[in-house]
Write a protein that binds this DNA or RNA. Sequence first.
DNA 1: AGATTAACTGAACGGATGTTCAGAACAAGG
DNA 2: CCTTGTTCTGAACATCCGTTCAGTTAATCT
Lengths: 196, 196
Amino acid sequence: MARTQGSHSDITGPKVRDTALRLFAQHGYAAVSMRQIAREVGVQVGALYNYTPDKQALLFSLLKGHMDELLSTWEAEPRPDGPRDRLEAFVRFHIRFNLDRPQAIFISYMELRNLAPENFAVIEAQRKVYEGALEAILRDGQSEGVFSVPDTRLASYALIAMLTGVNTWYRAGGRLSIEEVADIYWDMVRKSVSAD
Amino acid sequence: MARTQGSHSDITGPKVRDTALRLFAQHGYAAVSMRQIAREVGVQVGALYNYTPDKQALLFSLLKGHMDELLSTWEAEPRPDGPRDRLEAFVRFHIRFNLDRPQAIFISYMELRNLAPENFAVIEAQRKVYEGALEAILRDGQSEGVFSVPDTRLASYALIAMLTGVNTWYRAGGRLSIEEVADIYWDMVRKSVSAD
DNA sequence: AGATTAACTGAACGGATGTTCAGAACAAGG
DNA sequence: CCTTGTTCTGAACATCCGTTCAGTTAATCT
């Protein structure tokens, strides 16, 4: 039998993506087989190829979709005046965005090396744009004299790593809410760049 | 032919570990085959099983060896008086240690999920010991009034993530020496906990 | 009602996987 | 010099891999 009742592409399609995202985040791209994805979706393995040309494209599509959403959401955020408030906005945005999609964040840091070179280049370029936004804030603050950062490039790396690290330990329903976490991180970031 | 001249276990053994470490770091545990390791070592695949009971044990052995070295090296470090100097020692030690073994650091953060549960528990416990050392410093500094950190647990996570992040961008021979990098990071860490 | 099309099954393809093992080649010890 | 033990080869094992495709089913269109 094929095409059981109510199973259409607009149901199976997202299900394939969701399942792949979850399994890739849990076990890693290389450790997850197409058959495993199919089993959890509830179809035979061949059916997956209605939704992706191959396994590599599935990974790339997930990462690309995530980066597109990250960039467009960030650009739609209110952009306060002055480096200090812009930095705070970045910190709070980053933490909120990350904690809302832990799996996507996880694979977009862990599975980069499993991208084909041309796919890697695309994602890497998008990441540079995003991290560049942080560095621009730091540079502005430094030149306006409201921050004191000896090396803005390096500081942006350090802060990104610190902020992205929340995903390794934060669990929803824990002792701290997302807002409380953001408050604490912002406190540390603010002091680390010597802002008021 | 077998046993060609000069190939003994005290040469092949370390070569297997070095090769496995390099390949795991480069492509990921699941993406590297035993045959690939054997090829780069220069033996047939069966010969690897003189040095490890199986692939999983090889990964665990690499991670365990790394964590053992991390803990014993840290415990052998001079232990300055007072939280401020102890924190500085920790920061400089961590950066130095990490940048000296980028591959081992990489796999011990990336390949944890590929460990069998009982192996994972061992490594996780060791990691907790190490991170606990940082938190103890923060707690002491907080209670002595030389630091101002609202949440020492969370701050230790944040700082560890920030410090470990150096491995993602630092390349030997770049524009900054390890000492310069450590100076800059220490400056940020110091300020983030409000130490003089 | 009949034709068309989208969605899926079931099976197959060649090749790669981790692991085992009998036997060969060599070095060392008596 | 002959035995013993170590180290390795070469081949095999069963199983899994990503991917393809002819055929089947069910929804949609005319």
